[in-house]
């Protein structure tokens, strides 16, 4: 891999990370936010692999490769947990969006939702 290639991969990893970051800030839907986090993670993986590929020697640096290898599996599992939490958010609030606008307009809504849940809990 030439030096230019190396720079391109590193720059691409920064761009991928920032694309995910922007979506994380802008999107309200929790599913899109989880996807944004995954895109950010892909940027980090690309960065680590690009970094490890440039070291001198017969083989690429095994340490970043090992970190990415486990990182991918961990990120899949974290995504699974995030999806379960997102489903729980939707179950309890009847909404799958997190936004400031929602919080103001639907605050009375949510209050009644919590009360309903409480009465449900005491009934059972």
């Amino acid at each position: 891999m030439t030096e230019i290639d190396h720079r391109v991969y590193l720059a691409a990893s920064a761009i991928v990370f920032v694309i995910g970051f922007y979506s994380l800030l802008v999107q309200a839907h929790v599913l899109r936010r989880i996807m944004a986090l995954n895109v950010m993670g892909s940027g980090v993986f690309l960065f680590l692999i690009a970094l490890g590929s440039q070291t001198p020697g017969p083989v690429p640096d095994p340490v970043p490769r090992a970190m990415v290898l486990t990182g991918i599996v961990v990120s899949v599992c974290a995504t699974g947990l995030a999806l379960a939490l997102a489903d729980r958010v939707q179950d309890t609030t009847d909404r799958c969006e997190i936004s400031e606008a929602n919080r103001h307009t639907a605050s009375s809504d949510r209050k009644s939702g919590i009360e309903a849940e409480h009465s449900e809990g005491s009934a059972s």
């Binding site: 490890g52 440039q54 070291t55 001198p56 020697g57 083989v59 690429p60 640096d61 095994p62 340490v63």
Partner: peptide, 9 residues
Amino acid sequence: LPTAPKGLT
């Protein structure tokens, strides 16, 4: 970043 990092290879 250094162009040829030593790394841990």
